[in-house]
Design a protein around this nucleic acid. Sequence first.
DNA 1: AATACGGGGTG
DNA 2: CACCCAGTATT
Length: 289
Amino acid sequence: MHGRTHLPWRTTRDPYRIVVSELMLQQTQVERVIPLYEAFLARFPSFEALAAADAGDVVRAWRGLGYNSRAVRLHALGRAVVERYGGRLPSDTAELRALPGIGAYTAAAVRAFAFELDDAAVDVNLRRVIHRVAFGLEHPAQADDRTLDTLAIAAVPRGGAHDWNSAMMDLGATICTARSAKCLVCPLRDTCAAAPVDSATLAARVREHAARRTPQEAIPFERTTRFLRGRIIDRLRDVPARESLALDALQHDLAAVVPSDRLHEIPAVVDALVRDGIVMREATRIRLS
DNA sequence: AATACGGGGTG
DNA sequence: CACCCAGTATT
């Protein structure tokens, strides 16, 4: 058996454990999820346990993962699964897509990894590997996402979606990575349009076709809204569950970690967090939802 | 079609 | 410092 056999979600077929892993893995690296995964499952062992909790408890358990809206969505998903399906996650794509936090990728991943149905979970790894094999290096792109999806789906062996998706992701994460390609040890080297990849060529192509920086990313992190949101949520995580914090006190405490000329932005950022369902306001006090 | 959304790891 | 990461929802 090759590949990353140590991943804690790889051996289970429990739909709950699979969705939790998939929500955690959305835009968050495997190595960072691993140490937090089992602790989360111990705290919330089932859809019912998740649904019975406050969203704020889930956001607390989410510390270290980032993209906190995912915690709120996972909590909402738990409640929806309990209410709509009696605690049983559906395997139908349309029903999965209708649940909070589940998009095209996650629906396919749940189907393949939890239900062993023939579907292609086309994440950044799959897209890169398929592109290289079928068209060569991905910078510049020779095919759009829809084309890559179609190729991926056609390549899934009947009854073998779980292992196939796992293998393709492992290939993309360990051998055919974004920054390099170890074609010499790649099982697909004989049929791959990109092999053998020259590392200097790959680096040059990536530089040449680098995506335009978004305005938010072009400025120092301490000047971004994300930074403020992160500091506010971190502070609220330290407030005991079901207790609240005065907005004044929040502003005072954050003076230690936030540039002084940004403290006046805190109320507006809190408003945004409330709109996102992450923070709850009670008069002049706030807490995690 | 663009943008917002975290934060830590890597070369 | 720039790029990368098992994407989704909103505008």
